[in-house]
């Protein structure tokens, strides 16, 4: 679950609730991606998120700022495409789970070689959030990437419960989404639908 506090009317209250609700339903990686926040605010949000995560099967990854992740006691870091080199960042942040966003097979291979523990690949389907990465790459590209690396690949971009199975069939280990968690009329049902597919 990629965070988007700017998409919430009162994130202070709603985001922790969302974290509790999602982590109670199924194991997730929560990726805190809040570029507008100062490091101090991001650190405080990370602490608050950790305190609202339920169960012990979910992980918290902070986008890019491994210093904030280490300071807050998060589980890992998620590196965007134009981040500090992954191998250098990992050498300076021992013990952190490291994810990397990739948009091509070449990037996926190099991220794996640099030590990424998991990859996010996309956009697989059409999505307004990821327009800047160009047209969707589709399930065949997803499959090519999943066959070429040995680390788990999460499909991103236009993910909904209804297309999750297709992603899994094409080699994805899981799926990553942002919009669906924020726009769902019935979040509980959406999460149940995800779980049904993912636990199959």
């Amino acid at each position: 679950m990629v965070s988007n506090c700017q998409g919430l009317s009162s994130p202070e209250k709603q985001f922790p609730e969302l974290v509790s609700k999602i982590t109670a339903h199924l194991p997730v990686i929560i990726q805190l991606r809040e570029k507008h926040l100062t490091a101090k605010a991001l650190y405080e949000l990370a602490l608050k998120t950790i305190s609202h995560m339920l169960g012990n099967r979910s992980l918290l990854c902070i986008n890019e700022r491994f210093d904030v992740a280490l300071a807050a006691g998060a589980d890992g870091v998620h590196f965007p495409e134009n981040s500090c080199p992954l191998d250098k960042a990992l050498a300076a942040s021992p013990g952190m789970v490291a994810g990397k966003s990739t948009h091509s097979l070449k990037q996926a291979l190099s991220a794996e070689a640099d030590g990424a523990d998991y990859l996010i690949f996309g956009p697989v389907f059409e999505t307004p959030m990821k327009k800047r990465y160009g047209p969707p790459m589709g399930l065949d590209k997803l499959n090519e990437v999943c066959r070429s690396v040995s680390v788990p690949v999460y499909a991103i971009g236009g993910i909904i419960p209804q297309n999750t199975l297709q992603c899994l069939v094409h080699g994805a280990y899981g799926v990553a989404a942002m919009s669906v968690f924020y726009t769902a009329d019935n979040l509980g049902r959406t999460l149940d639908n995800f779980r049904t597919v993912l636990e199959r």
């Binding site: 490091a39 101090k40 210093d67 300071a71």
Partner: peptide, 26 residues
């Protein structure tokens, strides 16, 4: 601000403002 970059690039230090990571944590 960017302690992450300071650590990865192994420079001599970091300067933090009041809105950056708390100095004690850094």
């Amino acid at each position: 601000d960017r302690l992450d970059i300071a650590l990865a690039a192994d420079v001599d230090g970091v300067h933090l403002g009041q809105e950056d990571l708390p100095p004690s944590a850094a």
